[in-house]
């Protein structure tokens, strides 16, 4: 099965900080894809910075509602070291 790829830069630009948009991405794109059994790729190519608030609004509720094993079905692609660092923080404290 081909995973659903969500290109973050096309939704928020190169600085991912608007958590209203993060929540919309989660509710409109991530959660429905997971509910219908698809895997999800969050593609961060071209994103230079992401805030913890953005990442929290993007994935924390997914982890809380589906359980931590949902991370087997979500991939984070093309992350800079900074974006990766933020993802790791949020994933860490949600466990």
């Amino acid at each position: 099965m081909t995973p659903q790829t969500i290109k973050i830069v096309s939704l928020v630009g190169i600085v991912a900080e608007n958590k209203d948009i993060a929540r919309t991405i989660r509710i409109d794109l991530i959660t429905p894809a997971l509910q219908q059994g698809d895997d999800v790729v969050l593609d961060f190519s071209e994103v230079t910075l992401m805030t913890q608030s953005f990442c929290h609004a993007l994935i924390s509720e997914v982890i809380r509602s589906f359980g931590i094993d949902i991370l087997e079905r979500i991939s984070f692609a093309h992350c800079t070291p900074e974006v990766r660092g933020i993802v790791e923080i949020v994933v860490d404290y949600m466990q």
Partner: peptide, 14 residues
């Protein structure tokens, strides 16, 4: 703990 879906209580600590 862990905040809501929208807030984690991290901004000022960061």
């Amino acid at each position: 703990e862990g905040g809501t879906d929208y807030n984690a209580g991290a901004g000022l600590f960061f």
